[in-house]
Write a protein that binds this DNA or RNA. Sequence first.
DNA 1: GCGTGGCGTCTACAGCTGTAGACATCGACA
DNA 2: TGTCGATGTCTACAGCTGTAGACGCCACGC
Lengths: 197, 197
Amino acid sequence: MEDAPTGRQARRRDAAATREAILRSALIAFTGHGYDGVGVREIANAAGVTAMLVNRYFGSKEQLFAEVVEVAFAERTLIADDVESLSRFAAAALVAAEPRSVDGFLLMLRSVANPRATEILRAAIDTHFQLPLQALLPGAQAHERAALFLSVLAGVRLMQQVLGSSALATADAPALERRLRPLFDLLVHPPADAEPP
Amino acid sequence: MEDAPTGRQARRRDAAATREAILRSALIAFTGHGYDGVGVREIANAAGVTAMLVNRYFGSKEQLFAEVVEVAFAERTLIADDVESLSRFAAAALVAAEPRSVDGFLLMLRSVANPRATEILRAAIDTHFQLPLQALLPGAQAHERAALFLSVLAGVRLMQQVLGSSALATADAPALERRLRPLFDLLVHPPADAEPP
DNA sequence: GCGTGGCGTCTACAGCTGTAGACATCGACA
DNA sequence: TGTCGATGTCTACAGCTGTAGACGCCACGC
């Protein structure tokens, strides 16, 4: 079997399609190995293209990464649209996470070592997750609770998918979901935040 | 001013001290930039030593990293010894985390992109955190709850220190701690886990 | 004082990285 | 059918990486 890059002989000098192929190849590669773990040649090869063409279309590896981040965070299936569904959605997404999924959180977790990638990721998370989520949360200190909500999301994802914690791998889905729900609920619904005078 | 590596002129051909200097330099560098973000020459230079000496003492960069991980996870100030203090300790440690701290979690968060580093880190976390913690937790499914406990710890740490979430940076310490405590409590104390038959 | 064994460095080597300019080739339009 | 712009490739270059062997040098024991 040949290496079969993503639709090599099907595409014949189509600039838009080539750009899309590179972007998709980069998304998969960056998500799987992180910003520093992937070379431009590797991305180009998987897209059936030369390394130089990547820089022609995207300017540099860093700019390519920025576009990849934007694509990865565009479809945010983790954040529900209404407050009542937030916890259920998040918990369900966590227990259903497949090891080969390519969402933005996985991309972030493997790329935060690089300072430039981190800066891009911070901005993207702020725009696509933090701000919409804190706008959705009722009660006081919504920005703080939204950040913690995302922290739990990222932390569980890190342990079960990136680090490969055996405890989270062997746990059956319904039980894990029953544990996660109240955790998120605690952050969604502000618990009578009376400060002691 | 000269670059002043860690005690250069103070140490004169002392094998144990040199080894220790390299180990400490590597700990700081790996924690700050991750496994792939640091070169052997950089570590050696900060220790006032040549790159080759690093491999002489530790065999390879990977083995050096393994020793660094062991050192970083040896002093686990995040996990209390008794069940009652667990939540308080964890919450307090999170709000008191300084940007330049060098604990194992930070080291992990910036090195999980590399597969070999990940394998080393997974084993270390299992030994130094997961196993002691799940042995301490009362009730059913302690391993699962311990893993989630560590997930929250790692996730918050990631957001506030590695990614630099502004929401967690501007939050004042007491309020943040009051939010974190019940989160950990929910995982420490099993909430009447009656399964519907 | 002097040899000797450990401690440390110098030079080097493949291999990889991101990026740049010059060159080739396809395909649509005249 | 011929041509020219767009699309893609080739060669190359500094710079970095981890690792290896050969060599210098200091301090201690005789």
